[in-house]
Design a protein around this nucleic acid. Structure first.
Length: 595
RNA sequence: GCGCUUGUAGCUCAGCUGGAUAGAGCAUCGGCCUUCUAAGCCGAGGGUCACAGGUUCGACUCCUGUCAAGCGCACCA
C-alpha cells in the first residue's frame, strides 16, 4: 500500500467507534432511530485538547434533550477500547477529545521514510482530467509582476492537483489575433522606420516599451530596408492623434490599415509574426526560468484558421441562442444568467474576442476535461457570467468550469505606489523582480497570500538583502538538518536507521511529540490545499513545520552520546527534512543543503 | 446606479467552511552563542475581528442592512 495515510485511518477508526456508540444510544432508546448524525472529527488546535476531537455530543444534545457534557460522558462510556487511543476526555462545553497513543504516532516517521518523496501524495484525483489555464497574457510585451502572481499561483495549483492524483494539463492561451496584436505590429513598424532614418511621430496609443525598439532594430539589421516606406506616405491623410486634437483610436486604426496597404498582406504578416515570435519566446523563457512549464501553448489564431469559431457559433445558432441586430450577431447570454446579451460578430464581419473564447471553451470540452480551471486577473471577473452562459449554450455541464481570480499585486517602492501600464512601458517586469529578489523568494512571496487577497508587494523590502523573507526561514530549517548530518560525518559517527526506528519511543520530549504531530498532518494539508486551490495553506504549513523544527533544534542536542536516542532523533529530523523537501519541491522552490 | 472582491494587532497577513483563551511575521521592548549554522530560540506589550441588527447551545466565520477600499459594467482584448 503505497499511499498509506495514518491520519485518515485514525479518523476512520474514531468514526467507527463513535458509530458504535450511536448504535448503542439508539438501542437504549436515548436517541431516536431516525436520526443519523454526521460524525465530524477534526484535528485539535491545542495539544492540551489531545489529537482529535468531535463535537458529536454538542450536536446531539438538542435531539436527545440533555446537556452536552452529560451526553458526552454517556458516549464515552459506550466507546469500545482501542490500543491506538491512550485517553478520551470531555472538555469545554462538551467536546470529546481523543489522545492518540505515542506508539501509534511514532509510526509516522517510518511512513515518511518508506514513502520518501511520495509522502503526502495521494490518488484522490485519480481518473480525473483537469486543465489549468493561466497567465495567458497578450504577447505584446514582457511579463510584468502582475502576471508573475498568476504564474506562481497557477503552477502551484496545477502541481498540487497533480500531487493528489489528478491528470493535469497546464495551458497558456496565446492571444495572437486581434487588434492589440495589430497595434503591436504597427508599433514595431514605426520604430523600424525610425531605424531606417524616417521621421515619424509615435502614436500615443502604441506600445512604447524599449523592447519594441530592440525588435525593430533586429528586423532592420536582418532585412535592411525591405519594410521601408517614406514617412509622408505613412502619415498621409491619417486622422490626428489625441495630443493634436484627434482621436487616438481612430489614429491608430488608420495606421494599421495603412501598414497593411503599404506593406501588402505578406510582408505585414511577416512583420507581425516576427514581433510575435520574439515576444512569445521571451515569455516562454521567462516562465521556464520561473519554474513554470506548460503542456500546451494554444493559439487563438488557430481557432480562426480551423473554423472552430464558425463551428462554435453554428452550435449556438442551432440551439437558438443567436440573433441579428444593428448589423451585428448577438449571443443571447442574458437568457443564461448574464446581465446582457453579447456581440459575437461585429457589423464589420469580424468576430469578437468573446467568440474566440466560446470556441476555445468548446475545444476544451471536446478534449474531454472533467474540470476546466481558468485563472484570471480579478479585473476580468465581469467576464465570468458570459463564459458560463456559453458553456450552458454549448450544452455542457457548467460546473466543470472553475474560474479562480487572482488580485493584482500592488507595487510599492517604500511608501510610493509604482504606476503600471503596459502601453506606457512603465512597468516592473517579472524578470527584473526575479533577478532582484531571486526566483525562490518571488514564488514563495506570491503564493504566500490567498489569491483573491489584494497584495502589497514592497519592492524595496523584497529587494533589500535583509532577508526578512520567510522563504529563508523554511529553507534554513532544511539546511540545518543537512548541516547536522555533515557534523555526524565529521565526528566519525554513522547513522543507524534500524536502531533509530526501534528506539522511536525514546522521543518523548514535548518538542519531539509536537514535531511528529505536525509531520503527520502533511498529507491532509496537501489534500486540502489542492482541492481548495489554496497553495498558501501549504506555505503556512511549511512555516509551521520549520518553526517547530527550529524550536526543537534550540532546545535539544541531536548528536548525543546515547546511540539509540541519537539515531531516533536523526530519524525524526530526517523525516522533517523529507517533508520540507517535498513541500518546497512541489512549489518549485529550492532546498539548499547549506546557507 | 448595478455587480464582484475585500475590511482581523502600528504594518503585512493567517484563522482548518459554525467550535474551546482570535494567531503568525515584521516593527517595539527584555533575555539566550567556550555545545549540531544566532538567516535561530525564549519572553513581554499590542484587538470593540469596519459598524448595527438577526439566526443558535456557540458567530471572525452564516443572513440582512450601513460605511469604507479595489475592480468591473464595449460591436477592446
Amino acid at each position: 500500500m503505497l499511499f498509506f495515510h495514518p491520519f485518515k485511518i485514525m479518523k476512520q477508526k474514531l468514526e467507527t467507534l463513535l458509530q458504535h456508540a450511536i448504535t448503542c444510544l439508539k438501542s437504549e432508546a436515548i436517541l431516536d432511530q431516525e436520526i443519523a448524525p454526521q460524525i465530524i472529527i477534526e484535528r485539535t488546535k491545542d495539544s492540551r485538547h489531545g489529537d482529535f476531537a468531535t463535537n458529536l455530543a454538542l450536536s446531539l444534545a438538542k435531539p436527545v434533550k440533555t446537556n452536552p457534557r452529560q451526553l458526552a460522558e454517556k458516549i464515552i462510556s459506550l466507546l469500545p477500547s482501542d490500543p491506538a487511543i491512550a485517553k478520551v476526555e470531555i472538555a469545554g462545553p462538551g467536546f470529546i477529545n481523543f489522545f492518540i497513543s505515542p506508539d501509534s504516532q511514532f509510526q509516522i516517521i517510518e511512513q515518511i521514510h518508506t514513502a520518501g518523496r511520495n509522502y503526502g501524495s495521494s490518488k484522490i484525483g485519480a481518473g480525473e482530467k483537469v486543465q489549468v489555464e493561466f497567465v495567458s497574457a497578450n504577447p505584446t510585451g514582457p511579463l510584468h509582476v502582475g502576471h508573475g502572481r498568476g504564474a506562481a499561483y497557477g503552477s502551484a495549483v496545477a502541481d498540487l492537483l497533480q500531487a493528489v492524483g489528478f491528470d493535469v494539463s497546464k495551458e497558456y492561451y496565446v492571444n495572437d489575433a486581434g487588434r492589440q496584436m495589430d497595434i503591436l505590429a504597427v508599433s514595431i513598424w514605426l520604430r523600424y522606420l525610425e531605424e531606417c532614418g524616417e521621421v515619424v511621430t509615435f502614436p500615443c496609443n502604441g506600445y512604447r516599451g524599449e523592447y519594441i525598439r530592440d525588435i525593430a532594430f533586429n528586423i532592420h539589421n536582418n532585412t535592411g530596408n525591405e519594410y521601408r516606406h517614406p514617412a509622408e506616405l505613412v502619415i498621409e491623410d491619417i486622422p490626428a492623434d489625441e495630443p493634436h486634437g484627434g482621436d487616438k483610436e481612430l489614429h491608430i486604426d488608420a495606421l494599421i490599415v495603412r501598414a497593411k496597404t503599404l506593406l501588402g498582406d505578406s510582408l505585414y504578416r511577416d512583420l507581425f509574426q516576427a514581433g510575435l515570435n520574439v515576444i512569445l519566446d521571451d515569455i516562454k523563457d521567462d516562465l521556464e526560468e520561473f519554474g513554470v512549464t506548460y503542456q500546451e501553448w494554444f493559439s487563438e489564431r488557430s481557432l480562426m484558421e480551423d473554423h472552430s469559431i464558425k463551428d462554435a457559433l453554428q452550435r449556438l445558432d442551432d440551439g437558438g441562442y443567436l440573433y441579428k441586430k444593428e448589423g451585428a450577431t448577438w449571443f443571447a447570454s442574458s437568457r443564461l444568467g448574464d446581465e446582457k446579451d453579447r456581440v459575437v460578430v461585429r457589423d464589420n464581419g469580424q468576430s469578437t474576442y468573446f467568440a474566440s473564447d466560446i470556441a476555445y471553451h468548446m475545444n476544451k470540452l471536446d478534449r474531454g476535461f472533467d474540470q476546466i480551471i481558468n485563472i484570471w486577473g480579478a479585473d476580468h471577473h465581469g467576464y465570468i457570467p458570459r463564459v458560463r452562459a456559453a458553456m450552458l449554450a454549448l450544452g455542457a455541464d457548467e460546473s466543470k468550469l472553475k474560474v479562480l481570480l487572482v488580485q493584482f499585486a500592488i507595487l510599492y517602492r517604500g511608501t510610493e505606489k509604482v504606476p503600471m501600464s503596459t502601453r506606457s512601458g512603465e512597468f516592473v517586469t517579472l524578470r527584473q523582480l526575479r533577478s532582484e529578489v531571486g526566483t525562490d523568494a518571488a514564488r514563495f512571496f506570491y503564493v504566500m497570500r490567498k489569491s483573491e487577497q489584494h497584495m502589497d508587494f514592497d519592492l524595496k523590502l523584497a529587494t533589500s538583502k535583509t532577508n526578512e523573507n520567510p522563504v529563508f526561514y523554511v529553507q534554513y530549517a532544511h539546511a540545518r538538518v543537512c548541516s547536522v548530518l555533515r557534523q555526524l560525518d565529521e565526528k566519525g559517527l554513522n547513522r543507524n536507521l534500524n536502531l533509530g526506528m526501534k528506539n522511536l519511543n525514546k522521543l518523548n520530549e514535548s518538542h519531539e511529540l509536537a514535531l511528529i504531530t505536525i509531520l503527520s498532518k502533511y498529507p491532509e494539508v496537501l489534500e486540502k490545499a489542492a482541492l481548495q486551490y489554496e497553495p498558501h495553506l501549504l506555505i503556512n504549513y511549511l512555516r509551521e513545520l520549520a518553526t517547530s523544527f527550529h524550536t526543537y533544534y534550540n532546545a535539544h542536542q541531536f548528536l548525543v552520546e546515547n546511540e539509540a536516542l541519537r539515531n531516533a532523533r536523526l530519524n525524526l529530523i530526517c523525516a522533517t527534512k523529507q517533508v520540507l523537501s517535498n513541500g518546497l519541491s512541489l512549489l518549485n522552490i529550492n532546498t539548499p543543503e547549506s546557507m
